[in-house]
Design a protein around this nucleic acid. Sequence first.
DNA 1: AGTGAGGCCTGAAAGC
DNA 2: TGCTTTCAGGCCTCAC
Length: 277
Amino acid sequence: MPELPEVETVVKGLRRSVVGYSINSLHFSSKKLRLPFQLDMVEEVIGGQIINVYRKAKYILINLDNGISLVIHLGMSGKLRASSEYSKQKHDHAVLELISAFSPSLYMILNDPRRFGLIIAIPTAEVENHKLFLKMGAEPLDAEFSSQYLFNKCQNRVTTIKNLIMDNNVVVGVGNIYASESLFLARINPLISSKDLTYDECKKLVLSIRSTLNKAIESGGSTLRDYSQLSGEAGRFQHLFKVYGRKGEPCYECSTLIKSSVISGRNTYYCPKCQKI
DNA sequence: AGTGAGGCCTGAAAGC
DNA sequence: TGCTTTCAGGCCTCAC
């Protein structure tokens, strides 16, 4: 399940392995992903040279030198792999053949069993105003995600703090796992109303979200240091979970048993003592 | 308008 | 053992 840290890791890997290559061919499977493939997409991207790869929320953006950008999302089961030869695997949905004057050709494949992901092409100039990105909240690792920013958002909403930090219109890239982990680190109960958070608690939460994501990027990256095979495989951050998936197990801080509650249909884990209401 | 529920989708795991 | 059900997750659409 690619969370923001894994997307970041994949992006770093792509940047090292595919920048400079040109797209020689592009093939799709017949199955639809979250958004359908555009029929004219193939013509637009063929011949384009990859000049940059970066992350925006959990989206991977690949800029081409012809003014077109590929936008890829891994959903929850998506993986990108790269290899010098293409051998078909179940759930391959897009296959890009990349060529370069200086290196052997390379195949980049999007594989996504659950098809929650997407791959589309849009003009680079329109990325910022595209439907997918228009109403997007702050990047959690950027300065715009400040204590004051979060505090203001908390005041204007009627929902639990857990729902608020998972809302992409507030802050992007905080999935179910990192919401639980960050709230534990900040010692804030996930069930409390966002309006009840003090400024100091917001400050603590901002720092906790940043720290949790950064640690995950570090441990996600460590297993993927060798990018000879580009992969979306999970890193090692799951061994660092303090509360997620630990229902009924003792809290590492106080030995109280970890509880879980369903908030908006999502399992949420917390320590009832460390995260008192 | 803002909020929350439901749906998409497959495969692993749990339940029977 | 083999079948069925449940659950996981991001993000979109759609009622209230």
